[in-house]
Structures are given as C-alpha cells and as structure tokens.
Design a protein around this nucleic acid. Sequence first.
RNA 1: GAGCCAUUAGCUCAGCUGGUAGAGCACCGGACUUUUAAUCCGGGUGUCCCGCGUUCGAAUCGCGGAUGGCUCACCA
Length: 496
Amino acid sequence: MNQEHMEHIEDREELNELMAVRRDKLRDLIDMGIDPFGEKFERTHTAREIVERFAELEDQNTVIAGRIMSLRTHGKATFADLMDSTGRIQLYFRIDLLGEEQYGLLSKVDIGDILGITGRIFRTRRGEISVEVSGMKFLSKSLRPLPDKWHGLKDVDLRYRQRYVDLIVNPGVREVFETRSKIIQSIRNFLVERGYIEVETPMLNVIAGGANARPFITHHNTLDMDLYLRIAPELYLKRLLVGGFEKVFELGKNFRNEGISTKHNPEYTACEIYAAYANAADMMKLTEEIFVHIAQEVKGSTKIVFQGQEIDLTPPWPRLPMLEAIKQYSGVDLTGLSDEEARQAAREKGLDVEPNASYANVVEEFFDTFVEPKLIQPVFITDHPVEVSPLAKRKKDNPKLTDRFEPFIVTWEVANGFSELNDPIDQEYRFRMQMAQREQGDEAAHMMDEDYIRALEYGMPPAGGLGLGIDRMVMLFTDSPSIRDVLLFPHMRPRS
RNA sequence: GAGCCAUUAGCUCAGCUGGUAGAGCACCGGACUUUUAAUCCGGGUGUCCCGCGUUCGAAUCGCGGAUGGCUCACCA
C-alpha cells in the first residue's frame, strides 16, 4: 500500500457522510496493519451446506466466507447474517471467545463487507443454526452503503443500471439468471444428445441477412469498410448444410436496430437449429420436445404459471393455419382474395391499411389485431404468405403460402421455423421481391446475397429450420413480464 | 418516434389550496453476552432530476429539457 494509495483514501470531497465513515474505518484497519482487501480464502462449507447438513455438522468447526447483510450488536455479543451464493447463515460473535482486540474489530465491520469466518457450528436458544466465530478476516471492505435491508432496491432504473446491487439485495434476481443458465444448458444438451453440432458463424457481416430487420452498422478500420452486426445466423448455417453438415445449431446473439420494449432488446439471444432431410412438421415436433424438456428440467412439470395464468405445454400443440386462425377469430375469410379485395375486407373490419397495402400486409394486419392477442395456450400458426417468408419453401398445394410455422404462447411469438427453401432459382426471385420492397423504403427487407444463391446452386438438401427466442423462453419459465428482467444488463440510455 | 405517469436523504416513501424539508431502515454517539425487521436513549446526514419563468416567497404553479416506467408504433 503506497503513499499515493493512502492519499486517495483521503480524497473524499464528493463523498457523503455514509461513505466517509466507511473510508475512515478502512483507514483505521490499514493503520492497525490489517489488509481490508484480503486474498484467496479456502472455505470448507457453504451457508446452505451448514443448514442442510446441520445434524452431522453440529459442534464441528467450519470456514466460510460471504457478505455481511445485517448486524445486531448486543454489547459484548453480536449477531450478523453472512450471505454467500447459496444463502445466508447467522454469525455469533462473543467477546469472551474472541478477546477484546478481535471483538473490537467488529466496530470496523459494515453491512456489505465481505468476511472470511472461522468458527463452530451450533444452534442458538431460538433455534437458529449459526456459526460461533473464533476468527475473522476482512476479504473486502465495502465503501458504499447497501439499500434498505427490508425494502431492498425497487427503483427499476437503478436495478438495471447497477445490477450488481440488485443481485446483492434482491435474492429472486439471482434465481432468474440461474434458471436462464439452466434453460440454455438444457437446450444445448438436448441438441447435442440428438447429434446436432454447435457452430459459430460471423457476427460481423458484409450483408445482414436471414431476417427482416434493420441492422446496426459498424466500421472496420484497417479494411476501411462498414460492416453490419448480424440480424440472424440463418444464411450462414444453411451454407453449412450445403457443405455437408446435416444437423447444426448456433446459440448466440442477434442485433436488431429496432425499438426497445418489454419484449425487445437491441441485442438478444436466439438459438437456430437446422436438420437436413427434415421439414417444418419435424421442426414443430422438435419445438414441442424442447419446451417439454426445459419445463421438466426447470419446473418438473409441463404445466407452468405465467402472470397468474396456467399454461399447459403438454404436446401436441394445435396446428392452426394462419388464414384459418384469422377466419376463426375475426370471422373474415381472406383465402384467395386479391390485394384490393383484401384491403376492402380490412376497411370493413375497421383496420387502418395503406392504400397500396398488399394481400400479405392485410393478412398480417388481421393476424396482429384479431388473432395474436388471443393466443395464450401454445399453438403453432402455420402457412404464412410467401411475401413475408422469403426463405421458406412454398406449400406444394398452394404456392402463395409457405410451409412455415410460428409457435405462440401467452401471445408471444416464441419461435419461427419452416421447411427451408433450397431452390436457388426461386430464392433469387424471392430476394428480388425483397429488394423491390427495399427500394420502396422498407429498410427491413432482405438484401440480395449472391453468395448464398451460389451456395444453393451447389445443392442444399431439403431441411427443416427452427429459431428459438431464448429471452422470451426465459421470461415464460421465470414468470418475468419484461425482457429486462431476464437480461443481466439490459440496454439503457447513458445517464448524463 | 407519440401519449400518459414518475423523479424528495444511501434505500423505501410522506409532504394539502405556494409560507423555514419529514418518517422508517441505514448511519453516528451511548446502554446491552443467544438476537434475528433485536431493543432503549440521543443525533437529520438533502443540488427536493436539471434549466428558465411566475411570485414578496416554489419541492409544490407554468414552459423547456434529462432519465425511467407503461401504452402505442417498428420488431423477435
């Protein structure tokens, strides 16, 4: 600890009283020759182990470490709660056991300090499993006060910006992210066990393809060229099917330069899965299996509760063609209508449609207005119009529709899949249609990807593809109403 | 991007029709050797989000701005 360091401790012009007091204690510890920021510390138990295995551990010595979450001083005895990643355990300090000097150090301990503790496991008169402290070591002095021990941190702005504090004081938050980890791990295990190979494809793209979305633009200095952050890995993964991989998946982030909402974050996690020689029907079954697998692993049941509603994930989920869903929920049959007829039908139902809206636009509008808000229990919406599905195979019996599906749960689209279009000639035509839309101002329409067409020209096996929205799945399984609750550091505007 | 709402102590929140800034927790001093939202006695620690305006006087009223939440739009 050099002179400069010591001077910085004094440098507290900006500090409020609470922080100044903590720095005084820090200084006192240093003056006593105690390092407030200790080193590697070997533990013998966790808080949870001590509680769960108390019968066999009673009266034994233990070495534990964690953060002090509360202090109750009673003169010559003090109680404290120590929290580690497994839970809390009570500490009991006595002056006659520690001696005056060691016991006196407690006056330098603040809520939030990280301590290493040696002691004997016992149960207090009131029945609380505790550790009677015989030795303590400062592992990290905390220089900022923690939020209210009872009310915690509620200000959502602060919770997201200072997630580290949120995690310390709101125990449920850690559980959400533990569940998130479990979900991702169980998807990975599920796919690997079935012979899928996990791959990584570029996130810096020359062409942002595989989805309809506006991309972020970045710049490569030495190449002096702009690049896009990927909006989907789809086109790369299907190049791998051309190359001979038959079952691949990628789990990672996509970046979309779109609005932010309770269901949208600019960067989000998706899992895309491709299986050669399969089709949309196979991928729907895979979707059901994955959801059931996760539900069993994290909930132990295929019935879950989301915001008070019971959701039954037991397969099979109904398959409902989009036009039938619209007929069912709006009473209007849009099958086979011309653009003008479709616009007329929309106006009759009081929908606001652009004068040049296409049939596909009208179908989407009907779906979003009348159908989507009703889709609470799991259902596959299938057979989307070809115009909004530029990478999906057309249906054999109706080339205006595609062999595509989107599962909906609690009104959210949680995935998207289809029989992959492997005809390079039709694919080139579809890209041209997309470019026409682009020219009409649709920034989210596909860009032409000549190399992808070239890949298809070598021959891609027929395949089924599936993209899972991981964040929404985590929301569903953790009963979280906002995507920000399942992202450790959701995107926030910087504070001035 | 639009509408509505919020922003007061470290945290959670009161603060009426404009009149010297409040509580609980936390913190500081004191008492207390099995407490657990420990208790008891004493202490209020503040850029009332920022700026401008109205007024004798603004946390409070008006205008502008910042950040956040919700709804809508774009999207997954």
